[in-house]
Design a protein around this nucleic acid. Structure first.
Lengths: 338, 338
DNA sequence: TTGTAGGCGTTATCAA
DNA sequence: TTGATAACGCCTACAA
């Protein structure tokens, strides 16, 4: 008789090993509850048949998937890569799998993907930032799916979250910029609509600007997508003003990359003609010319901590987490006195 | 009585709508086979309860998940981002979901993730390149999981694949470099072990070098991971040789980015002191200074086509695909005559 | 330590 | 057009 071409099931293994399906199941799951003798028989049958447990069946029976879902706004640039990497590694150590999808910064897509992940039985979820419809939070609550928010921390919000204060961080950088003597600042912000991190960062600059006694009307701001290209375009626009800025503060390093690149094309020297700052400290930042002054975010720590806390939440070992991480300003060549 | 806190099932919906579960199921799946009247009742019940079908149960019963798995070597840099984006968009249009995981360029991890994805009931798989253990292919074949390989095309391989000829493409670039008069070429390659794309690209350079009558012993080569940092380090090493190269050809744009960055730090002018080339044409490439001469890969087309063909494979509308896409050389400022 | 058997939430076949 | 009902593959009391 030819070897069966169909996919082996628990039943097949049980039959091959001459035991019941319950015993096979125990071998695969419960470490202890089976004798060394039968365990061997079973394991031999398992890899003779190349048996792999059917995930769906397991999920249905056990009501647990050891799967975590993460939805990030984009995979296009490196912003979330490092943090997610750490998140997934920590998860993996603890026996969890990670499912990632990207929402392309579109709230309705995010909502759809949340539903999909929950329907797939994700034991927990990682989402970026706070801003989403209340109905989404309600849904999650109703389903009882533990969720943790990352990449943002706002002291006035109560949802489990691990991140940093985008607003305060950017304000710190702006304070620094102003203290260096800059009085003509222009801003290239990400699109704030639907993106609380972008909005908070922008607010941070405004806070500083106002606190230093300047008029918000004198603060040119362009909002544009987080792409190199659009950062460059915004830079060109900003420098076309009659009163050129002495520094351009960007909402993240991707925009800053575009700004610096375009500066060179237009013949401006950074920082002697105009300074540029970023946010995130992606790997590329220190390799730009000049190297980029930016806000360093502890992505690895954030991802790791998020994983640990999410698992605690799932296991019921804790009911909530709110952790604020410290960022730091990295002074590099792209920022100088005016 | 308080609103039920448990998750609604097909049963709940059926009861609420006063029909059988079969009917509800039909409403949700088969477009036609239900009267307008009952369909309305059912749909009302569905969103009154906030019902979402349980994915695992559905997968078990239907033996189909409308899920595609993709395993890419890394999410750290933008190499695969654009292609994957197109892949996922096309999938989405056709009603499929995409599950992505990254193998960190580690074959054993890839194998593990393939098993996980298959166990999850993925209807099909996208993998990068050809090189993996035969046992992996055997496993896939045995399970009957349609799989398509992308980012590579070798005419002597028979597996369904959509990509480009890494070797011929790189050779084309090398021919061009040599025809411009370069006689001292050095290479920064990715790690070729376990990475056929990297190996093919390196071979492409060797092909050209040998075909032009030069000795392979006179071709300095450094293999290093695809990171900006290591590209920079390799550049420094190569330029420390007594006979400095007039051009450094890099295995991809990430390495080239590192090389150009380091060149500036070391005071070399690109291209007048040394030319640099890349491969992939990532977004950043044209924003480097000088802009990077590289091989443009049609990532979008590749992702889109891969999705279409994979679905055909799944539906049984075709049994195999082998498609070679054309690349082109993008001449930019980083390459000049010696 | 091991086996029996019920149930998890769907889909699909077959009657009605 | 609808409704029973049998799978689907696994886990887990409960019994032995």
């Amino acid at each position: 008789m030819p070897k069966s071409l169909s996919i082996p099931t628990l039943d097949d293994v049980a039959r091959a090993a001459g035991v019941s399906t319950a015993t096979v199941s125990r071998c695969l799951n419960a470490e202890k509850k089976v004798s060394e003798n039968t365990r061997e028989k079973v394991m031999k049958a398992v890899d003779a048949l190349g048996y792999v447990p059917n995930f769906s069946a397991r999920a249905m029976a056990a009501k647990r998937t050891y799967t975590i879902g993460a939805i990030i706004p984009t995979m296009e640039n490196a912003i979330f890569a490092r943090g997610l990497q750490a998140f997934q590694e920590t998860l993996h150590e603890q026996g969890y799998n990670l499912l990632v999808s990207s929402s392309a910064y579109r709230p309705e897509l995010e909502a759809e993907q949340i539903r999909a992940l929950v329907a797939r039985g994700a034991d927990g979820l990682l989402l970026i930032g706070y801003e989403r419809e209340q109905s989404v939070y309600d849904y999650l609550e109703k389903r009882g799916t533990p969720t943790i928010l990352a990449w943002a921390y706002q002291s006035n919000k109560t949802h489990p979250s691990i991140g940093f204060d985008n607003r305060a961080s950017m304000r710190m950088l702006a304070d620094r910029v102003i203290s260096m003597g800059h009085r003509r600042i222009a801003v290239i912000s990400g699109i704030t609509d639907g993106n609380d991190r972008a909005e908070e960062r922008l607010n941070g600059i405004k806070d500083s600007w106002a606190a230093n006694g300047f008029n918000l009307d004198d603060l040119p701001i362009i909002q544009t997508p987080y792409e190199i290209e659009s950062g460059g375009a915004a830079f060109a626009d900003l420098m076309a003003a009659p009163q050129k800025p002495t520094v351009i503060m960007c909402g993240n390093d991707v925009l800053a990359t575009g700004a610096i690149s375009r500066a060179k094309e237009l013949g401006y020297d950074v920082p002697s003609d105009v300074s540029v700052t970023g946010f995130d400290d992606i790997e590329l930042a220190k390799h730009l010319h000049p190297p980029l002054t930016t806000v360093h975010v502890p992505h690895g720590e954030m991802g790791r901590t998020a994983a640990e806390e999410l698992i605690k939440l799932i296991d019921g070992r804790t009911t909530s987490v709110r952790r604020q991480l410290n960022v730091s300003i990295v002074m590099r060549g792209s920022l100088a006195r005016p």
